[in-house]
């Protein structure tokens, strides 16, 4: 059925804590260019699974591949350099650096400038820096923060920080971007804005995997949704099918989250 190689392939990912299985034999594949949602009740292993995939936690079992290249067990910085970048649930930014610096840092390990070239400040460096600045300004314009390019990141609101994080994750021109709760805790206007930004980036060819609690947001944005419960995949398909899947309904009902799903339906 799938003649082309998937962009991301996860096989049998498993993570245990003190006898508790947080992620249990999870397998899926992502197509290039897609926007896929990863949802599930609290503690279903969504965040743990992407922490393992990005190298921030050691998986107990399983393998994963990006473009056919195995990433299993690599350190976080190696996974990032291989083309899988991510944002964090607890929004992270370099508060004392300007927005533009925040973005340029995010690209500097991928442009092939060596330490020696960086110190000697020759042509290679100047070219790479100019390219990074141009891309940074372009991304700031995309997320609507261009006016603050030279301001320290500390002045941003919570929602603006999420936008900056998304922009930073795009800087090194990654193959796949994983967004960890991009709209949790932001107001409705900002949710719409972030949704628009993600659509725009996807239209430019970026593949995205989005972990979210906000089912409504996922259902309207994603072409495909993966649902986890207790570390296992219980459903995988287009939003329409997911809404009527009895196992999904049961999982959400059992966790007092039926209201969220209902809202998505209505």
């Amino acid at each position: 059925m799938t003649p082309v190689q998937p962009l991301l392939e996860v096989r049998g990912l498993t993570k245990r804590y003190l006898g508790l299985t947080a992620v249990d034999d999870l397998s899926y594949a992502l197509e290039t260019g897609s926007v896929v949602g990863l949802i599930g009740p609290n503690g279903s292993g969504k965040s743990t699974s992407i922490d393992c995939m990005s190298g921030f936690q050691a998986a107990d079992r399983g393998q994963w591949f990006l473009d056919g290249r195995e990433l299993t067990g690599l350190a976080p910085h190696r996974i990032a350099r291989a083309g899988l970048t991510r944002t964090f649930q607890t929004v992270r930014a370099y508060d004392e650096l300007t927005l533009l610096e925040n973005l340029c840092v995010a690209a500097q390990e991928n442009d092939g400038v060596s330490w020696m070239q960086a110190l000697l400040r020759g042509k290679t460096l100047r070219g790479a820096d100019a390219a990074a600045r141009a891309r940074g300004l372009e991304l700031l314009a995309t997320v609507g923060l261009a006016n603050y390019a030279d301001a320290p990141a500390a002045i941003l609101s919570y929602g603006q920080r999420k936008l900056l994080a998304i922009a930073a994750s795009m800087m090194p021109k990654p193959r796949l971007v994983v967004l960890d709760e991009p709209v949790a805790g932001v107001n409705q206007t900002m949710v719409r804005h972030i949704e628009e930004v993600i659509r725009k980036l996807n239209a430019e060819g970026v593949t995205l995997l989005i972990v979210e609690h906000n089912v409504d947001f996922i259902m309207s944005l994603c072409s495909r949704v993966i649902v986890l419960e207790s570390g296992s995949k219980i459903a995988d398909g287009p939003p329409g099918l997911i809404r009527s899947d009895p196992r999904v309904l049961a999982a959400y009902l059992g966790n007092k989250r039926a209201a969220e799903l209902d809202a998505g339906n209505g």
């Binding site: 990005s54 190298g55 921030f56 350190a75 976080p76 910085h77 990032a80 350099r81 970048t85 991510r86 964090f88 992270r92 930014a93 370099y94 508060d95 004392e96 650096l97 840092v105 995010a106 500097q108 390990e109 991928n110 930073a168 994750s169 800087m171 090194p172």
Partner: peptide
């Protein structure tokens, strides 16, 4: 400076 300010973020950016 990036490592000092936020090490996990720096790691996630290939540093």
């Amino acid at each position: 400076r990036a490592i000092k300010l936020n090490e996990p973020l720096a790691q996630s950016q290939g540093i």
